[in-house]
């Protein structure tokens, strides 16, 4: 639905070379109520948006679902990080500094710094560094996104058959706040240690540790919950007795 938004699509088409990939099939549940009445829903369909250079190096990652205005604002900032990185002498060192700085900002103030646009077009000839492109914003709680989430115009159960209802979905705003102020910090920590990482280097770690969906595990880390009290041994998967191999 996010990519059906005219403004989101237009800005992505203008500023990026977009591509989507599937990391695995999404789990679904079907509940058969009998007499042909079946309910099918997806579960745990986690997503991540990477911004990459032409050689596939990760500039940054937006974890999870965002509401459209914040998604575009963050993508715009990452466009600028990509722009600046290409103009530094050692892009990997610049990216390591950028992620380190943002991880610290989120840890200390609960909020990332904002990437300044046009920082390299100043009248003064300046060397691009995190000091020149990042600016601190006033720390406040709740965040602006969370304030919007609590506003009266938000609804818990939007009617998705009507256009524009996504903009009023409270949970999307709450998730955006968690993504920006919690998950994003984890992403910066991962990438500050691996500034040259390609998506294949960190995807499993991001899904397992940030999005809490271990894509190496056929049961997405839910095997114990699914089978702990289940009495019929013969129905259990072969590896159900083993401890999950995560968080190594």
């Amino acid at each position: 639905m996010l990519f059906s938004d005219e403004d989101v699509a237009r800005q992505i088409n203008e500023k990026f070379e977009p591509v989507w990939v599937s990391v695995r099939d999404v789990p679904t549940v079907t509940i058969d109520f009998g007499k042909g009445h079946k309910l099918t829903r997806t579960l745990h369909g986690n997503v991540a948006t990477y911004v990459l250079t032409a050689d596939g190096t990760i500039i940054d990652v937006l974890p999870g679902l965002y509401e459209s205005a914040q998604y575009l604002a963050q993508l715009n900032q990452l466009w600028w990080v990509h722009h600046y990185a290409a103009r530094t002498r050692v892009p990997s060192a610049f990216l390591a500094d950028y992620h380190d700085e943002q991880a610290r900002a989120i840890q200390t103030s609960g909020k990332a710094k904002v990437v300044k646009p046009f920082a390299d077009m100043s009248k003064m000839s300046i060397e691009i560094s995190t000091k020149t492109i990042l600016r601190t914003t006033g720390s406040s709680y709740p965040s602006e996104v969370l304030r919007v989430a609590k506003s009266a115009e938000m609804v818990d159960r939007p009617d998705f058959s009507k256009p524009g209802q996504l903009k009023h979905w409270r949970k999307l705003y709450e998730d955006t706040d968690i993504n920006e102020n919690e998950r994003r910090g984890q992403i910066h920590m991962i990438l500050s240690k691996r500034p040259n990482a390609k998506p294949g280097d960190v995807t499993k770690e991001i899904y397992r540790d940030v999005l809490h969906a271990d894509i190496d595990d056929p049961y997405l880390g839910l095997q114990e919950t699914l089978f702990r009290d289940y009495p019929f041994q013969e129905d259990r998967p072969v590896s159900s007795g083993k401890t999950s191999q995560k968080h190594g």
Binding site: M1, L2, F3, S4, D5, E6, V8, A9, R10, I12, N13, K15, F16, E17, P18, V19, W20, V21, S22, V23, R24, D25, V26, P27, T42, H44, G45, N46, V47, A48, T49, Y50, V51, L52, T53, A54, D55, G56, I59, L75, L78, W79, H82, P199, T203, A213, I215
Partner: peptide
């Protein structure tokens, strides 16, 4: 959606090398 998606990541990276635009890689389950 209304985004003009490239068919494969390598195609997007090649296009990025030409256009100078960054690649937006949307990863998902499903």
């Amino acid at each position: 959606g209304k985004v003009r998606w490239h068919k494969a990541i390598q195609t997007a990276m090649d296009a990025s090398a030409q256009s100078g635009k960054p690649v937006l890689l949307f990863q998902m389950m499903g």
